[in-house]
Design a protein around this nucleic acid. Sequence first.
RNA 1: GGGCGCAUAGCUCAGUUGGGAGAGCGCCAGCUCGACAAGCUGGAGGUCACUGGUUCGAGCCCAGUUGCGCCCACCA
Length: 851
Amino acid sequence: MFAEWFEAGYFHPEAEGSPEENFSVAIPPPNVTGALHMGHALNGSMQDTLVRMNRMRGRNTLWILGTDHAGIATQAVVEKMLRAEGTSRQELGREAFVERVWAWKEEYGAQIVEQYKRLGASCDYERERFTLDDGYLKAVYRVFKQLFDKGYIYRDDYMVNWDPGTHSAISDLEVENREVEDVLYSIDYPVEGSDRVLTVATVRPETMLADTAVAVNPGDERYTDLVGGYCVLPLVGRRLPIIADGYVDPEFGTGALKITPGHDVNDFEIGRSHGLDEIGVIGPDGRMTDDAGERFAGLTIDQAREAVVAALREGGLIRSEEPYAHSVPYSHRSGERIEPLISLQWFCRMDELAAPAIQAVESDEVRIVPPQWKRVYLDWMREIRPWCISRQLWWGHRIPVWYCDACGANPRAAEEPPERCGACGGELRQEEDVLDTWFSSAIWPFATLGWPEKTPELRAFYPTSFLTTAREILFLWVARMIMMGIEFPGDIPFRDVYVHSVIQARDGRRMSKSLGTGIDPLEEIDRHGADALRFGLLAMSSTQDVRFSDAKVEQGADLANKLWNASRLILLNVKFKQDQSHTNSAQDQVPARVSPGTTEPRPETPEDRWILSRLERTITSVTEKLEAYDFAHAAQEAYAFFWSELCDWYLEMVKPRLYEGDEAASANLLWALERVLALLHPMMPFVTEEVWSFHPARRGHLAVHGFPEADRSLIDVEAEEEVSAGIELTRRLRAWRDLVEAPAATILPARAEGVEPREFVGRLARFAFEENGGTPVAAVGPVSVLASEAIDADAVRARVEARREELRSEVARAEGKLANERFVANAPPEVVAEEREKLERYGAELKGLSE
RNA sequence: GGGCGCAUAGCUCAGUUGGGAGAGCGCCAGCUCGACAAGCUGGAGGUCACUGGUUCGAGCCCAGUUGCGCCCACCA
């Protein structure tokens, strides 16, 4: 089925028309390292549903597909492979290593794309992009150069999150804080020229080797006299100025704080404002440097901590040790503890870029749904800090900056490698570092369309229509796309951002590979089918996080099955000229493929008018839900209409007519089936397309069939009321016979009092309505059940008594309400009227039963 | 420390503006009804976390309490 769509070119639109009239989506690019996980499956199902709906509406629709080179993740995978081979990236050298990664990408990178096809995703597979392909690289370099020229990009020695695992700086957003139990050491620092000591507290005694000051609060009278003096750093002997800084909390510990500008973010800030020395004792490899002193150099951090503590203990300088729970930064990428250290990195100033991106969301030009995320976005953007964009990796976009070692001219950025130094003509050397992966992701919506070239695709499909995303990348990715979109192509990258919920594991934990809690969507597809998984995911999605529900996937599978079976009933029995020549002999009882025709509704009976009316209401409602990104209710409403109203009721109502060859019934069934298939197709493309292939009105694929638009003229309130009443009566009659334990197959005699019920009532409830004669034994609504051998008199009496009880309490309830003067006075008149009507109705029934 | 969210049937979740608590699954009973037992029919099952308030009326609004979850954050 997928191949048919694909080969027909439905997913590959011409680059025509304007973004306003077209519909386009840029897929959040999966990592090349990845396999389809449940997040992709959910996200993909949502996007495909809207993409297919809009394509069916006849809009020129593009769903751009591609993958992300995912710098750190991919490099790590290949490095692991090299280790298994007994070699390393250092041994291979940069060029050979990068070649290996490319080779790896060529071999495995296509996997995830194939998996999207299994899900049924109607992406444009012919326009697939990769964040490192040639055109994309050009776009990245153009962006870098322009930001550089504007002065936003600069190089600085600054405190960064150093990840000893990946040997690279990483951004604040890639750091996760974990609660950790550490030991808080209190250490005495002797005051110079005095026998006093300042006691400082730290969980990281090894960093004391890099201390360059001790700070106290300026208002702290205990230490006023010491400010301006010095401490002597134990083990090292360095003189540490005692400084005053408002940052220090006098309430915490002794109120004295050791300052380590080289290894602590706060201390770094304090150090810069006081002009303190910055000493680094921990190297990029996570080991102590020579500056830590002979005694400690070369030790790992843990070893150094032990050694420092031992040495301090020996000197009697540790005043106390106590357990201390606090949060510690860990690398989201490698899982190792982050070392804050000072390092020469490239940064991008964000203030100017953020301002219009804040404005765009404030004004709802970019609409964030659900709306609570708007504030989260705005709060973060208003506090935005410079972005460290360099990474000490080899896999990625090498920063397009060149240095001249000969004359030491200022580094220059260029889109193409410059030949020679502009100043002295000397050889140039390109920056070794690569860009943060998110730097290239940030330009995804327009770089994939060919920017900076003025391509037809860019003209036709930018800005894109919407973005679905998990909230965890709201800052990491979404915010940056908005900034870059406004800065470069000059327009927001998408109108709507839909932040979807997270599907958790069955036990409520996070789905994660490392926890072993992941559920593989491909296995679910194997087991239940892609349609079932899609339906299940849409139906279980919500505004809040939800646990993965096997039941919802099974509900989807059941729906697919029901669609097939109900269609079989309709298509095998409907009166329509069938072409037997295409009989599919491979499958038993599968209806023949039939020649094309057209369907039109033919509302002749109230039942016809009822189902047609209900169908139009369902179309309206499901469409509204989909447009509001309320996939769960859209899916479940479509399910409920099809299953309950169409199958359980209408099909049963019209069976006799269908078997007799009633043309109106046939026409209505074909019409309803066509519209239901089209309505469900965006959510469940495979089974609907398959069933459609047997529909006599078939013209071409359902994938490009018109999406149903509700026809208000078919809404019929009168028929809805009449048939609803018949359904209600049928239900009550069935319940009644069950309660009196009437044999299921027996047709019971009854008499209609007043209005004759619709024909289906007697048939479906298995009652025969007689004109006269018989002894009434019970009243069910307007129906008197007549005595017969099949009915046990005691059971009837019990049933009638039970009903009396029900009615008495209902009457009492209504009377109580109406006796309350304040209710009658204050409640809206229609509510009061309703209550009066109930009292009357129940009262009448009770009276009837008592006679 | 700040922000956001969640507690409703055995389970997973809905519940639009305040006017008799719903779905799917599970459970019980019945059913070879000319599509479907992956089905059909009927049924049982709820102190809407707790306390107080507003209101004629509260699952829904307000205040507080308890228990969970997530995000952000530079107290050693």
